[in-house]
């Protein structure tokens, strides 16, 4: 009979397998978590930079034209 399946040993083998699986899942989650956080921070920095650049640029004149017809209203931004 396989040594690993003997009554006294099998439970330790099962525990080792369970811990190895959990360790793998945990490391995977940890890695993904770090990457997601880094990506999120990068996006936030990028958005802040875009906003800052937008503030420095000269303001483009904008206007809102509203046409009122027989059927309804239509708003066009220019």
């Amino acid at each position: 009979m396989n040594t690993f399946l003997e009554a006294g040993v099998a439970i330790y083998v099962a525990l080792a397998v369970a811990l190895a699986v959990w360790g793998g899942v945990f490391l995977y989650l940890w890695r993904i978590d770090r990457m997601a956080q880094a990506l999120k921070q990068e996006l936030e920095r990028d958005r802040a930079r875009t906003l800052a650049e937008g503030e420095q640029r000269p303001v483009t004149p904008r206007a809102t034209v509203t046409r009122v017809g027989a059927v309804g209203r239509e708003t066009v931004e220019k």
């Binding site: 525990l15 959990w22 978590d33």
Partner: peptide
């Protein structure tokens, strides 16, 4: 806050590993 988050996640890892050990032994 980020450091607290890391500690909490490490605790989850250790806690569930402890549960596995208790479950088997």
């Amino acid at each position: 806050r980020q450091r607290m988050g890391h500690v909490a996640k490490l605790l989850i890892g250790l806690w569930l590993a402890g549960v596995a050990v208790a479950m088997f032994l």
